[in-house]
């Protein structure tokens, strides 16, 4: 792309950026009606932290679909992985192994804490899952063979519960007379925790598999 065309392109984008900026500035910064509604409904949501309440109760359906997106990405990557021989990760740096030996337990505890604290302050399933996945990545970096056949099998089974549990809870609420995913008021907190727990596990395994493993399951190579 020759210089002048590149500049013209940049100029065009600059004009658009400026236009959009002026538009954003016109957006009134007044009080948001939705915020007051969220705050009003917070006690019934079963959690104290507003974002987690929105995430898992008020707009729980979005999070449900989000887990499906993760699962979809996995299916997609799995579809692509079959026919390439992945080069094994031969990184046997001993400093790393020492560090990992120390770090992994800490990471697991941090993940559990993040899951728990989600109810009161920023945290929750996704953050915990990410941390766990990080731990997994570290492990596969320093010892690629750690995912033995049995671990693979468990990993494969753990992929699915995140979505399934969410689905079953939603169905249960429908059977009890409410709408889909309408947690009964009193049990909301514990149900959210249950869902978040399984979600964390699934997210961790999914992210790890996306990064490291060539998923050879689901009926073998």
């Amino acid at each position: 792309m020759t210089g002048v065309v590149r500049w013209a392109f940049a100029g065009l984008l600059a004009v658009l950026a400026f236009g959009l900026a002026s538009v954003v500035l016109q957006i009134p910064g007044t009080g948001s009606a939705l915020r007051s509604q969220v705050m009003a409904q917070l006690p019934q949501s079963g959690v104290d932290h507003a974002v987690t309440a929105v995430l898992l109760n008020f707009r729980g359906y979005d999070t449900f679909l989000e887990l499906v997106v993760l699962l979809l990405a996995l299916f997609g990557a799995w579809g692509l992985s079959d026919s390439i021989d992945e080069a094994p990760l031969d990184t046997d740096i001993d400093v790393l192994t020492e560090l990992v030996a120390f770090l992994v337990p800490v990471l697991i505890v941090v993940a559990a804490y993040l899951l728990w604290v989600g109810a009161y302050s920023p945290g929750g399933a996704f953050q915990g899952g990410a941390v766990l996945a990080g731990a997994g990545v570290l492990l596969s970096l320093c010892d690629p063979g750690w995912r033995s056949r049995r671990v693979e099998r468990i990993g494969e089974v753990l992929l699915v519960p995140g979505v399934l549990v969410f689905l079953l809870v939603g169905l249960a609420s429908m059977l009890l007379g409410g709408q889909f995913l309408e947690y009964p008021r009193d049990m909301a907190g514990s149900l959210i925790l249950l869902v978040e727990g399984f979600a964390m596990l699934s997210i961790a395994v999914t992210l790890h598999t996306l990064f490291a493993g060539t998923p050879r399951f689901g009926g073998g190579a």
């Binding site: 792309m1 065309v5 392109f9 065009l12 984008l13 004009v15 658009l16 236009g19």
Partner: peptide
């Protein structure tokens, strides 16, 4: 690609 993105930008405008 430049054509595509440029076209997207002009159409947005």
């Amino acid at each position: 690609w430049p054509f595509a993105v440029a076209a997207a930008a002009t159409l947005a405008l």
